[in-house]
Design a protein around this nucleic acid. Structure first.
Lengths: 170, 170
DNA sequence: TATTGTTATACTCTATAACTATA
DNA sequence: TATAGTTATAGAGTATAACAATA
């Protein structure tokens, strides 16, 4: 376990990450809010899936996910079709328009990162990714305030834990 | 410069940090929203200061800072008194009640971190802090979408850059 | 009964713009 | 003219709770 003073520092650093996130959000196309961008990214990376799984990956409540998805559907970026295995569910899939938009998003964010992280080595970025991934795992599904919100589709140890270390983390 | 695929990964990791932040926010006392907690923390760590400086440290617009401060003042946690050097400004300072609340906040967050980061070493937490601090610097005040929002009190290179490496980062 | 998903409501955080007071 | 700060307004993101349909 780490020293207590480190914790206060970490809390502040996490809080300040918001500025970086807003910087990224600002370069998105006007018609594409951050929630949609996250949905498209996860669908491209993990393939078609149901809302509940997407909510797990996003680490937000299913109700929030549902709204993001609705917006993306109305914009023509993803489609929602019946799940043959469960009539309560629908399967989400990127449309060609969605893939096109995602290409543009990738282009913009890559350019921004390349510009701002010009003096970061591959190893350093990888190290940060690894630590952030581990941080998520550490805060997921423990006792005090750890568990991510809302309803989970299965037991608490599924969700991102399943993705974080076995392949490129979500 | 790092590989492009690392950037997409970093974007996702940063996005997912939100879940951790919300986990921290959930353990705050009901009467203390996150904005107030951040204000109190920074005033305790950096001493009394003006709104504009606080806005730089928080990396949000001064208008946002002003509202957080107003709430904290109305709650009796900080006081705002005239700046003898500039009649447009007011100096912010923690009250005894504010210090008391901050103690409670520290107690709660420390307990949460200690619980969730039980298997993190001191070095690992320090490493994450260092990388996040550097990330902030890398995204502050560059060309494309880098600069933090709003009005700056001085030239672009002041603000958190001044704190990030010369002492414990903000 | 339990689960999947949707919708209504409310709250927090944020930015932009217009404004006042002072430098 | 420029800067420090406040306030009004609007928008994004989120959670909770109530609900419908299906398992």
């Amino acid at each position: 376990m780490a020293a207590r003073s480190q914790y206060q520092e970490l809390a502040r650093q996490l809080s300040a990450v918001g500025a970086v996130k807003r910087g990224i959000a600002r370069i998105l196309p006007a018609e594409c809010p951050g929630g949609s961008a996250a949905v498209l990214t996860l669908l491209a990376r993990n393939g078609e899936m149901r809302i509940s799984r997407l909510a797990d990956l996003l680490a937000v409540d299913m109700s929030v996910t549902s709204r993001h998805v609705t917006h993306a559907v109305e914009s023509g970026w993803i489609e929602r079709f019946p799940d043959p295995a469960d009539k309560r569910s629908r399967i989400l899939r990127l449309t060609p328009a969605g893939e096109e938009l995602l290409d543009e998003l990738t282009r913009r964010t890559t350019e921004m990162f390349a510009h701002n992280l010009i003096d970061w080595s591959d190893e350093e970025v990888g190290q940060l990714n690894t630590l952030l991934s581990r941080l998520r795992d550490s805060f997921a599904c423990r006792g005090t305030g750890g568990c991510t919100p809302g309803r989970h589709s299965g037991d608490c140890r599924t969700g991102h834990a399943e993705d974080s270390h076995t392949r490129t983390p979500v």
